[in-house]
Structure formats: C-alpha cells, structure tokens
C-alpha cells in the first residue's frame, strides 16, 4: 500500500539444513537476529512443535527459560534452549519437534546444532562441549 517498498535483498541470515542420524531425518533452521537466534529443530516431520525462549539475565549464570507454546520445563528442548543460550550468550527462541523420551535424538540434535553454531561463529568454541555431552 502506501509507502512500502520491497527488495529481495540479503535480508536476515537464515541457515537451513537437514541431516540423517539414528534412523531419523533431522531438519534445522537457524535465523540470526540481533543478539538473538531463532532456531527450529524438526525430526521426521515439519511441525513447529514446542516453543521455548531462553534469556541470559544478570541475576543468574543460568539463563531464564519460558515455555511459550506447549511443553514444560521437563520437555524435550527446554534444557537445550538454556544451554544454547549459555553457549552463545544470546537469547534463544527454540521451536522443537522431537519425539518425547528419546534422549539419543535430543543429544544428537543439540550436538549438531552446536557444531553448526560454532561454524557460523555464533557459539564460543570453549570447554563446555564435554559438559554438554555429559549432562544430557
């Protein structure tokens, strides 16, 4: 309408990729915003799944976590959102659709995501990696 002009420029950096592991197909979307990441993880299906937000706060070393759509603190992905926020130092909006009660798939998805975040230069490649594998 009035005063809209569009251009299919570069836009926001959006990374999308798929991967196969543990007899499942994983899909990932990573959208880079300012000090924020929107991440979607899908397994075998393309549903949005649960939506979590994790924010670093000055009050605690552990980022604050909110379940926005579905899910609770025990659900798949809740602690993943927290750890991704710790790793990047940014806010994480994580949409995740993984089968419940499958720690193997969850651990794989998190490792794969971190690997990607590091190669994109979003996550600090520091110690922590061991810690993550250990705590899943």
């Amino acid at each position: 309408m009035d005063d809209i002009s569009t251009s299919d420029g570069e836009g926001l950096p959006l990374r999308m990729f798929s991967d196969e592991a543990h007899d499942a197909t994983f899909h990932f979307q990573i959208l880079k915003l300012t000090d924020q990441l929107y991440i979607w993880v899908g397994c075998n299906a393309a549903r949005l799944g649960h939506l979590f937000a994790a924010f670093p706060t000055p009050f605690d070393r552990t980022p604050s976590l909110t379940a926005l759509i579905g899910g609770g603190p025990d659900n798949t992905g809740a602690s993943m959102a927290r750890r991704l926020s710790m790793k990047t130092g940014w806010s994480i909006i994580l949409a995740i659709n993984l089968p419940s009660n499958s720690p193997t798939l969850e651990a794989y998805a998190e490792r794969r995501l971190l690997q990607e975040l590091k190669s994109l230069g979003y996550a600090k490649s520091s110690a922590g990696a061991q810690q993550i594998n250990g705590s899943v």
């Binding site: 005063d3 809209i4 569009t6 251009s7 420029g9 836009g11 899909h27 979307q29 899908g42 393309a46």
Partner: peptide, 13 residues
C-alpha cells in the same frame, strides 16, 4: 527442505 521459507527486506514509512 520440508519447511518452505521466504525472506525479504522492505521499507515501511
């Protein structure tokens, strides 16, 4: 990729 996406830059006012 199972999720169709679209992105663009615009100017609004």
């Amino acid at each position: 990729f199972p999720v169709q996406s679209k992105k663009l830059s615009a100017s609004i006012k």
